[in-house]
Design a protein around this nucleic acid. Sequence first.
DNA 1: ATAGCGAAAAGAAACGCTTCCAGATGGGTG
DNA 2: CACCCATCTGGAAGCGTTTCTTTTCGCTAT
Lengths: 342, 342
Amino acid sequence: MAKHKPTIHEVAHLARVGIGTVSRVLNNHPSVRPETRARVTEAMQSLGYSPNPHARRVAGGRSYTVSLVLPVVATEFYNRLLEGIEQILSEERYEIALFPILSSSRLERYLESHSLAYQTDGMLVSSQGLAHALPGHRFPTERPVVLVDAYSQRYDSVYMDNRLGGRLAGRHLGQFGGSQFTITVEEDLDKALGYTVFRDRVEGFAEGLGEHRKSLPPEHIFTSRFSAEGGRLALQHFRSLAQPPYNIFAGADLLALGVLEEAEKMGLEVGREVRVLGFDGQPWTEEHGLSTLSQPIEAMGAEATRLLLERIHGYKGLSKAVRFEPTLLERRSTKPTKVYAD
Amino acid sequence: MAKHKPTIHEVAHLARVGIGTVSRVLNNHPSVRPETRARVTEAMQSLGYSPNPHARRVAGGRSYTVSLVLPVVATEFYNRLLEGIEQILSEERYEIALFPILSSSRLERYLESHSLAYQTDGMLVSSQGLAHALPGHRFPTERPVVLVDAYSQRYDSVYMDNRLGGRLAGRHLGQFGGSQFTITVEEDLDKALGYTVFRDRVEGFAEGLGEHRKSLPPEHIFTSRFSAEGGRLALQHFRSLAQPPYNIFAGADLLALGVLEEAEKMGLEVGREVRVLGFDGQPWTEEHGLSTLSQPIEAMGAEATRLLLERIHGYKGLSKAVRFEPTLLERRSTKPTKVYAD
DNA sequence: ATAGCGAAAAGAAACGCTTCCAGATGGGTG
DNA sequence: CACCCATCTGGAAGCGTTTCTTTTCGCTAT
């Protein structure tokens, strides 16, 4: 633990080059001889040097840091999104600064133009509502902004086609006999953020069922908070409405997990008496044999990051929107028994 | 929206002073005549000037930014904690940089010494486990660190006495007739963070009941995830074990809310057949008439921040620990009917 | 050999601030 | 009235980088 962080000068001295050369190595400037570059890299290693981002920012106007503004509902969704984002950023040696929105008052604070969020090279914003809450739908910054899991005309955006996911769910579950149900999440907490995620999934589900000439009665929609226990209550409720088999499209894997737990407790056979389909494609769904609509969340985060870096590097083209599609993973929880003709 | 952010030079020019004076005004240096100070302040106002934190950091070694490392389980607890912290920081014109730990891999990344988390003037760390996970229980930084809602010998810390809270719960509910129950939260998600919060509360509860010569049978402890629905399942479960009245100590207000919801659905009278006591003292408990153990969370955050700023300003004393106590708020949900003699 | 050229490297200037030192100002004193 | 001291103020130096200009070097073409 050196008391004193090594500077570019010490690296330069040790590698017997000028400070300019060290800087060029840091910034991957092409005109450094490979042999010189190696010497500098080695010196940096041996000194444990890492560049001071504040100095870089002052001198070059770039901090090699990107802001990520996101509502933290601490779901695995954001975990995985972050995973995808950090993957790309670390490859490019960028740092990430997180700005979680926990309340709307916090949101407002982030919109003030002197906020730290704007002191970085660019912003990734993951919140539909945030983009809309702003005057003129723009952020008070000249730096690039990319929206993740949200859509805007002004900025580049990447988003998940939740409605399609719902439709796939309807097509899949619609093939089975028995009643159709769905569990959705109350948008209460997220209303400030303008979520339509779960609504889109339910609407898509109804459409998908329609392709089988089946419909979704309003009382077959159970609204819950975002928790496994919500899924358990949902199954209890459905059981009071109809006889097995139950076909249940859960708006999230976590809800589906609750359904599985409760089915087991009730002694209902999963895959026959209770069929349940989740949404998200969480890693743990596999071990539970849970069918799910897998979302390429990491890929979405990665793509957003690539778009942002492209802008940071000076790309000026028109803003574009990239759509991602969920895909169906069929597992035991919706095993297609010989019931359907085909 | 000026393209160009005003600098200290422009402020100096407009106020007809030197840059040194402007800097002194910024840093509240005493030796500036009030009249000069006013002129400078006015110039800053009219230019919309705000100092560049990166430049301040490079020049003075201080960035007026504090890191907050915390596990984001997006509970209102952290919301309120942040509230208390930001209150103090904004008074002192400090900024805050948040480092939410969403997974343990992220945790490790934050421990690397070049991480952005260490580029600030000090750290507030809210995670028991984090402090212990470190080699030698120290963070790789020379800058001050203060622990919030955690305890350590090496650093200043402020913490909540959860066991006392449980004891208060036991003393209160123990006075009533009927069976005693508690709902606790599985520590699964938080095990990496070394939570003992909920365990402490349950242990305290048993102690408090002991003062009434009552005990807490293991099967009267329901373990749930952190959700309102968990409280509903808990009440269902308790009902299968015993007749009313039920006295329920919920480890969190959110769980207690579920109990209230389910009691209403079951047609059980709250305050007589079902008595429930929450923990946290969330603002919304009042409108629900929910008794709760109120935690001075904001005060705890504020105190931690004060300790940190004190260290940043150079205080070198021995590390201290400040304990905060929950207090009982009695509301309808545990209305003491004439049942008890006193 | 030598002029000429392009590539690579050195080092000065600049980024926006803090800090320090020297200079200016003004009032009190002998 | 000269002198001294305390109080304020101006601006140069410096923080750790990037970037631009200048210098150096190693070749090729004459």
